[in-house]
Nucleic acid binder design. Structure first.
Length: 813
RNA sequence: GCCGCUGUGGUGAAACUGGCAGACGCGUCGGACUCAAAAUCCGAUGGUAGCGAUACCGUGUCGGUUCGAGUCCGACCAGCGGCACCA
């Protein structure tokens, strides 16, 4: 079959019939299947795109044949750093390169033959989209979920520019090699932490991979503990956060993070010089050093002590950079016997290490951080650590020195990017009025086209006067805009809401439509988004719900991660490794259907694996066999006595069994993304039909034809162009995708006889064919009659007979 | 370091709630068709021993639970992914 020709033919027909377009009339039968949209790159579609979109499209087509009104949109995550870097390198404007890339990708995506509803296409860099991204920002600001604060950025002192994390290589600027430093800038944040608890609780009900849920759970990082107030000798008070209040008695020191405000205040004159020096060194330490756990812990005594509220003991206060100011209270109580880090620190600085927990039937060498029995804690000894924790905190609460507290590892989402190619932040800064949101009626704040990309230290927007200089919407006085743009994750945090109402010019989406179309029924994309995109999208959904725009809590009900197709060497494909495999030559040689089918058959979808094209010819062979069978079937005479042929005879029953077994399995496997086994079952069915064809008995032509027809229907989602062509050849006038998916006739699957395995003392001995509905007595009779078994049993008594119906008999002697 | 996932023939991979390990393919070997090749079709194919029926071994390693373990439990090894001092 000329694959190229039929691909063009059927793609044209599908387009003409608008088969991919969602019909709102059938919204009550909607099935919203979403694939993560693409980043418009200059390269052609790579195998990863095919692997993500091909099998998922087959899933959608399957759902369509099952009677759903499917919605499978596609779009582009079009803002972002690569286009801007490309502009700096080549002088080609990001808008131009991006639009060109998008046009290119649209073309190749169409050639895949997927049922994308292009009507609903979304491009995040278009005004009619980012206008609503800005709307979203303003809504979050109104709701108190967007705020400004100082935060460090990576700064290259030589290029005088802010660097993204991925542009920092080993602490050096990717471009010029200068040492990157941290610099504080006032930036915008979204208050995702307000939703930490709900984001955590909501995971329970999601049909997501457990692994992904666990990653989000760890990312959110809930810890339940208490804040305990210490008083300094000076009378100043501070709090520490701890999950182990049961270890309070043996605190042997306190550590402040370098940024802790009391450090400067409490440092004694004698220690001042040393502390100042330490603080300077700590501020210089770059990210890599600070993050290294193997790095030796350092710290300095500040020359001041704190009083332990539970026993009045004075303990020294240190400043050390292993304590993070951004988590908890920025101050930590040091319990060397119960915490590895504290142990290391105490050992180094000769601080007391006193046991506080005795292990229960286990090795409790220090440091010992597990639960156990409390010791060395007057009044609490003998309690379990869990009991002691409560008792100690409760006592301190009565004295007003503690409170229960929950902390989350999750940080607020920094959305400012010191970049050009993104959605401008819709806020102006007025000397008189301060921060003023741009009125909704003035959206979008347009991204100007005429900018320069020379890397001279300022972002292109900052030096664009026409953009920066504006009037205050409140007082009319002079004001300037924010030179930063929004993180592209903001754009992708709500695109699934735009698709179903993509042309709405009045609002980002119509809540009535969205509440019916969402949540997304199946979301398919890479596992690398587990903690960023997928968490941000959940947060935005919940925030919009609380503003009354949505009536559902979670955007993606069910999630699947496709695996990664690696290079033939088993490593991730990359230009630098030179192991990239392009799909185009395969499409050229074998056709889109064959490549799709091969990707479905050769890999476990969620696993992926190294690319290897050894089996791709087998797929062509499989389709050729079907084609030959179709030709044969079309040449068979029409049987006028069709009704008279009731299926009987061994061969016919076997064929009927094969067909219905295939229907049952393929249906189940397609639904659960087990594409490799679905295709295997199709191959089995084809083999069974060939076997029937080759049998010497007289053919039941209507049955033969009917089985073949069912095979084509089952195949259609996986090899859509090919199946259409065969379907048409069988005399059908409408697209195969308007046909109903075949249904399994369970009665054809019940066999009169089954083969069961027979074990003696759990060892495989033989196989027997027995009636499928046989009882224990019947089995005993068969065993007695069987010569081989009788010889094995040799007159011994059967102590126990284990029967697994239709599978196995185990004779215990 | 912590958390998680994975480990099955020469090879890609199957195995639903513990029940005939290796479905379906690739490759290899043998055969048919052919002057020959390609294509196609048929058969064999986990390992070891044996002419053979058959026997023993076999799902990373070691142990456990069970009539029965690829599947459950414990310890370890290897590969991959996530987190990175979160008190």
């Amino acid at each position: 079959m000329d694959m190229k020709k039929i691909e063009k033919k059927w793609q044209a027909i599908w387009e003409k019939e608008k088969i991919a377009n969602f019909n709102p009339k059938n919204i009550d039968k909607k099935y919203y299947c979403l694939e993560m949209f693409s980043y418009p790159s200059a390269a052609k579609l790579h195998l990863g795109h095919w692997y993500n979109y091909g099998p998922t499209d087959s899933f959608v087509r399957y759902k369509k044949m099952k009677g759903y009104e499917t919605f499978q949109p596609m779009g582009f995550d079009a803002f972002g750093l690569p286009a801007e870097n490309y502009a700096i390198k080549t002088g080609i404007h990001p808008k131009d390169s991006t639009e060109k890339n998008i046009a290119n990708m649209e073309q190749t995506l169409r050639e895949m033959g997927a049922l994308f509803d292009w009507n609903a296409e979304v491009k995040t860099c278009n005004e009619d989209y980012y206008k609503w991204t800005q709307w979203l920002f303003l809504k979050l600001y109104e709701k108190g979920l967007a705020y400004r604060k100082e935060a460090p950025v990576n700064w290259c002192p030589s290029c005088k520019t802010v660097l993204a994390n991925e542009q920092v290589v080993n602490g050096e600027c990717e471009r010029c090699g200068a040492t990157v430093v941290k610099k504080d800038l006032t930036q915008w944040f979204f208050k995702i932490t307000d939703y930490a608890e709900e984001l955590l609780q909501g995971l329970k009900d999601l049909d997501w991979p457990e692994k992904t849920k666990l990653m989000q759970k760890n990312w959110i990082g809930k810890s339940i503990g208490a804040e305990i107030e210490f008083t300094c000798e000076s009378g100043d008070k501070f709090k520490v956060f701890t999950t182990r209040a049961d270890t309070l008695f043996v605190v042997s020191f306190i550590v402040f993070a370098p940024e802790h405000p009391l450090v400067k205040k409490l440092t004694s004159d004698g220690q001042r010089e040393e502390v100042e020096k330490y603080l300077y060194e700590a501020s210089k330490a770059n990210e890599i050093e600070r993050l290294s756990t193997t790095r030796e812990k350092t710290g300095v005594y500040i020359g001041h002590n704190a009083i332990n509220p539970i026993n009045g003991k004075a303990v020294p206060i240190y400043v050390a950079d292993y304590v993070l100011y951004s988590y908890g209270t920025g101050a930590v109580m040091g319990v060397p016997s119960g915490d590895e880090r504290d142990f290391e620190f105490a050992t180094k600085y000769n601080l007391p290490i006193v046991r506080v927990t005795k292990g229960i039937n286990c090795n409790d060498d220090l440091p010992f951080h597990e639960e156990g029995i409390i010791v060395n804690s007057k009044g609490f000894d003998g309690m379990t650590t869990q009991e002691g924790r409560k008792a100690i905190v409760n006592k301190l609460i009565q004295e007003g020195k503690a409170e229960y507290k929950i902390n989350y590892r999750l940080r607020d989402w920094l959305v400012s990017r010191q970049r050009y190619w993104g959605a401008p932040i819709p806020v102006v800064y007025c000397e008189k009025c301060g921060i003023v949101p741009v009125p909704y009626s003035e959206l979008p704040v347009r991204l100007p086209y005429d900018v320069e990309f020379t890397p001279d230290g300022e972002s292109p927007l900052a030096k664009h006067k026409g953009f920066m200089e504006t009037k205050c919407p409140v007082c009319g006085g002079p004001a300037h805009r924010d030179p930063d743009t929004l993180d592209t994750f903001v754009c992708s945090s709500w695109y699934y809401l735009r698709y179903p109402d993509a042309h709405n010019a009045k609002e980002p989406f119509n809540p009535d439509i969205i509440n019916k179309m969402l949540p997304v029924d199946k979301y398919v994309g890479g596992a690398e988004h587990a903690c960023m995109h997928l968490l941000y999208a959940r947060f935005i959904t919940k925030a919009l719900r609380d503003m009354g725009y949505l009536n559902f809590d979670e955007p993606f009900k069910s999630l699947v991660h496709q695996g990664v197709i690696l290079g033939p060497d088993g490593l991730r494909m990359s230009k630098s490794k030179g192991n990239i495999v392009a799909p185009d030559p395969y499409v050229e040689e074998y056709g889109a259907d064959v490549l799709r089918l091969y990707l479905m058959f050769g890999f476990s979808y969620t696993e992926g694996g190294p690319w290897n094209d050894d089996g791709i010819k087998a797929i062509t062979k499989f389709l050729d066999r079907i084609e030959r069978l179709a030709a044969k079937i079309n040449s068979l005479p029409v049987d006028k006595n069709a009704d008279k042929h009731a299926p009987n005879g061994k061969e016919e029953k076997a064929l009927l069994y094969a067909v219905n077994y295939a229907i049952k399995c393929v249906d189940r496997d397609m639904d659960s993304f087990s594409f490799n086994t679905a295709v295997a079952r199709l191959m089995e069915l084809l083999n069974a039909i060939y076997k029937y064809d080759g049998a010497e008995t007289e053919k039941n032509i209507p049955l033969f034809k009917d089985c073949f027809k069912k095979l084509v229907l089952l195949l259609a989602p996986c090899a859509p162009h090919f199946a259409e062509e065969i379907w048409e050849g069988l005399g059908n006038k409408t697209s195969v995708f308007y046909s109903k998916y075949p249904e399994c006739d369970e009665s054809a699957l019940t066999l009169d006889e089954v083969e069961v395995a027979v074990q003696i003392n759990s060892k495989m001995r033989t196989k027997l064919v027995v009636p499928s509905e046989i009882d224990e007595q019947g089995i005993r009779e068969i065993i007695e009659k069987d010569e081989k078994l009788a010889a094995e049993i040799n007159g011994r008594e059967i102590k126990k007979l284990i029967i697994v119906p239709k599978r196995l008999i185990n004779i215990i002697l």
